[in-house]
Design a protein around this nucleic acid. Sequence first.
DNA 1: AAGCTTGAGG
Length: 321
Amino acid sequence: MWVEPGLHMDPFILSLALKACGLALSVSFGESLHGYSVKTDFINSVFVGSALMDMYMKIGKVEEGCIVFNEMPLRNVVSWTAIIAGLVRAGYNNEALAYFSDMWIQKVGCDSYTFASALKACADSCALNYGREIHCQTLKKGFIEVPFVANTLATMYNKCGKLDYGLRLFESMTKKDVVSWTTIIMSNVQTGQEGNAVKAFRRMRETDVSPNEFTFAAVISGCATLGRIEWGEQLHAHVLRLGLVDSLSVANSIMAMYSKCSHLDLASTVFQGLSRRDIISWSTMIAGKTEQKPLVDQLIKRDFMQKLLEMILVSAHSRDT
DNA sequence: AAGCTTGAGG
């Protein structure tokens, strides 16, 4: 790394630079900072070591991240949480829980961030018993009061099929934030209880917590299944007012809603107005058009397939470079 | 100084 003469590098700026590499997914720059850290011994700083490991986890080089972590001379609660969270993000839930157990054995204190990451590992791997143990610990240490810990815990119960526990936890929360409400709405939609999802959304509107793009995506898909196009239209207008249509998850759920309610024309209008489209946008439109029998639409469908193929090729190419 | 939770269709 080139440093302006007269300025000197320190662990603070180096860990910030590493964080930037992680955010920008800049592999080559990150690797040269790694080399620089080794040469200058800055790597022995717990801040630099943690940032370097986190950078590797964020750019998808999980093995390198683990190597950096295992070679760190000094680790603290942030280093441990970052490796656990990184493994969970990459889908290595069992490995993440193994690190969490190690951390426990080595008597490194856990905080709310650590519990949230470990609980997500349990949620994603349906490790209900381990999740229950962690639930006890969060109660003991008072972290259940931290909204994002309670939210992750509720998600863990919902994903493990224990919706009653998730619901009870949600109701007991004194501070329900946007994620708490969205989680309860989503869980209801995913388990075929769309009516309850809409009820929860209405309850939410009576609080001072504002819905975000996740909330709208969930409740709109609930309305789609219920066939309540009039509610869907109201939500569409709402989303337009808030400027949330730029979010693809919202736009896709609106298209799916119109499509399911037999208004393919409206779905098409939304689709045409999108400045960018992802695989869900395309497959939603294809699924909608496939429902229709006339030959003309089959031709349109073929056109869509062609474009879809092009898009897949483009994305495969950009992954290579 | 840093690490955390909600995700769409078939």
